[in-house]
């Protein structure tokens, strides 16, 4: 048996998944999670659609280093306890997202958003909002009184102005 250098994968149980789904429903109207939820540590959650039993996954993990399973799709905000969807989380659940959507109206604002800048806009909300431009869903922003705070990770930011 090998020594794992990190904490083992945790498979979210049915009760935890129901609670998560309830929050996703309240926040964004999401009714179904297409896969199992895995986590490692407290906040980041991974959506995994692989066809393998939990038992087999654990068996593999005992023998082989598992670096990752599924995609990082959401995290629980440590201050509010609410859910923040990642870019992929918003894209993979696109068809189910029905509320708390902020539609970015101009290409210029969209580029600013993708460059990692906050949008200086008052939405009248104090919520996590799914950011949308045309058909593109690009994760979550946090609306406060005067702005929407940006969570685009550094490695996914636009570095140059587009054509």
């Amino acid at each position: 048996m090998i020594q794992q250098k990190f904490t083992p994968l945790n498979v979210m149980n049915e009760k935890e998944k129901k609670e998560l789904l309830k929050k996703l429903g309240e926040q964004f109207g999401i009714k179904e999670i297409p896969g199992i939820i895995l986590s490692r540590g407290k906040e980041r959650m991974f959506l995994f659609s692989g066809n393998i039993s939990e038992e087999k996954l654990k068996k593999i993990e005992k023998e082989i280093v598992i670096e990752r399973a599924g995609i990082y799709f959401a995290r629980i905000d440590e201050h509010t306890g609410k859910i923040r969807l990642s870019i992929e989380g918003s894209q993979m659940l696109k068809d189910q997202i029905k509320k708390n959507i902020y539609e970015i109206s101009t290409k210029d604002d969209f580029e600013k958003w993708m460059q990692g800048q906050d949008l200086q806009i008052s939405t009248g909300k104090r919520e996590f909002l799914i950011m949308k431009y045309k058909d593109n869903l690009v994760g979550t922003g946090k609306a406060s009184e005067q702005k929407i705070s940006n969570y685009i990770p550094k490695n996914r930011r636009l570095k140059h102005k587009q054509n």
């Binding site: 297409p34 659609s49 393998i52 082989i64 280093v65 670096e67």
Partner: peptide, 16 residues
């Protein structure tokens, strides 16, 4: 991992 995430690959396990 970064490429699989960017492309939305959900049915994968990455082993080392």
């Amino acid at each position: 991992a970064s490429n699989l995430e960017r492309c939305g690959v959900m049915n994968q396990i990455i082993t080392r």
